[in-house]
Design a protein around this nucleic acid. Structure first.
Lengths: 158, 158
DNA sequence: GATCTACTACTCGGATAGTGCGTGTCCGAGTGGGGCCGG
DNA sequence: CCGGCCCCACTCGGACACGCACTATCCGAGTAGTAGATC
C-alpha cells in the first residue's frame, strides 16, 4: 500500500480541526517533517477525489471539502491508492481445460469470490470509520490535541 | 498483491485432488498455460512455508504437505505475498510536536489501530476459508472436476 | 543370471536480468497582495 | 490624499528522474531409474 495513505489520513484529521482557514502543503508537511512536494502530490489526489478543496496563490492551501463525518477512511485509501482491489483475478480458468469462453470467471471462480469477500470485509471496516470518528477518539484520549494543532498552524509566522 | 497468489491457490486446489502422486511444476503450469519457471518459484515459496512437500529428480514434483482442511487461503497469501501488512505505520506522530519518544505509536495511534482492525477482518475472512472448502464448493458446482483434473495429470504421457 | 556401478535424464532450488510502479523532486501556471505612479 | 495599475512573491498543479520490488528466466545441485560390466 502507498505510504502516502498514512500521511493523508493524519493530515485530514489535522484539517478537521482547522476549519475556516486554508493550510498550505508546506505547513502540513512541516507538522510531521514530511517531504513537502511529495505530500503535495498526495493532497492533489485527495483534491481530485473531492475530499479536499484547494486554492492557489498567497493565502492559499487545502481544507476539507465536506464534513469530516462524511469522509471515511476508505475514501482516502481509494483516493491515494487507487480503486483497484489488491487481488486481481486474471481468470486463469479460461486457459484451463474444459473452459467456457463465455463465462466471466471473475464472478464464477470460487477463489475469486473468496478473495473478493475478504476484501469486501476490509473495505466495509474502513468505510465504517470516518475522519470525525478518529478525531473524536483522539480528543477523548488527548483533549488538548485540537487546540495544539490549531495553535501550531495559526501561531506560525506568515 | 503478487499475481502468483492466484496461481498458487488454483494449483493447491488441483493438488488436493491428486493425492498420492507428486505433480511436477511443468504439468501444473501447463494446466493453466503459465510460465513454468515462474510458477516453480511460487511453489518453492509454498514449500518453504510448509504447505507443500517437494521431491527432486525423476518421479519428483510437489504435493500438499497436510490435509487441505488445514490449509487456509491466508496461509497461501502469507507464503507468497509475505507476512507484512499492507498498511505499515511509520509512526509519523513521533516526528510531530508533543511526541513522546517512549510511546509505540504503532499501537496507540488511532489511525494505525483502525487500519489494523480492517486488515484483521480481511485476514480472518481468508483464514476461515480452507482449500478443502473451496474444493468442496467446486465439486458441488462441477462434480466431474476432480476426475477431470486427475485424468489430466495421470493420462499425460511420461 | 545376478549384482554392483556408473551414467543419464529429469526435477527442484537458488542466483541472475528485465520491467512497471511507487518514491522523490523540480519547474511552470495561476492568484492575491503590496508598492508605485498619476490624478 | 485617493484610486488604479503593475510587479512580485507565494501556492497549487503537473511533468520529469530514481530506486525497488514484481516478473520472468536460466543454469547448477540432487536423485531415481537404467544400461552395462563383472563375478
Amino acid at each position: 500500500m502507498n505510504e502516502g495513505v498514512e500521511w493523508a489520513m493524519h493530515s485530514c484529521v489535522n484539517l478537521s480541526w482547522t476549519t475556516g482557514a486554508a493550510i498550505t502543503a508546506k505547513r502540513l508537511a512541516a507538522f510531521y517533517d514530511l517531504p513537502t512536494a511529495y505530500l503535495n502530490k498526495q493532497l492533489q489526489a485527495l483534491t481530485r477525489a473531492g475530499i479536499l478543496t484547494s486554492v492557489s496563490g498567497p493565502k492559499g492551501g487545502f481544507q476539507l471539502a465536506r464534513d469530516p463525518k462524511n469522509i471515511s477512511l476508505l475514501d482516502i485509501v481509494v483516493a491515494i491508492d487507487g480503486p483497484d482491489e489488491a487481488f486481481r483475478c486474471t481468470q486463469i480458468l479460461k486457459a484451463g481445460p474444459h473452459a467456457d469462453p463465455s463465462v466471466d470467471y471473475t464472478r464464477s471462480c470460487l477463489i475469486s469470490q473468496a478473495m473478493r469477500s475478504a476484501e469486501l470485509a476490509y473495505r466495509q471496516e474502513l468505510a465504517a470509520q470516518s475522519i470525525a470518528d478518529i478525531a473524536a477518539r483522539v480528543v477523548s484520549h488527548t483533549p488538548e490535541a485540537p487546540d495544539r494543532v490549531r495553535n501550531h498552524f495559526t501561531n506560525l509566522k506568515a
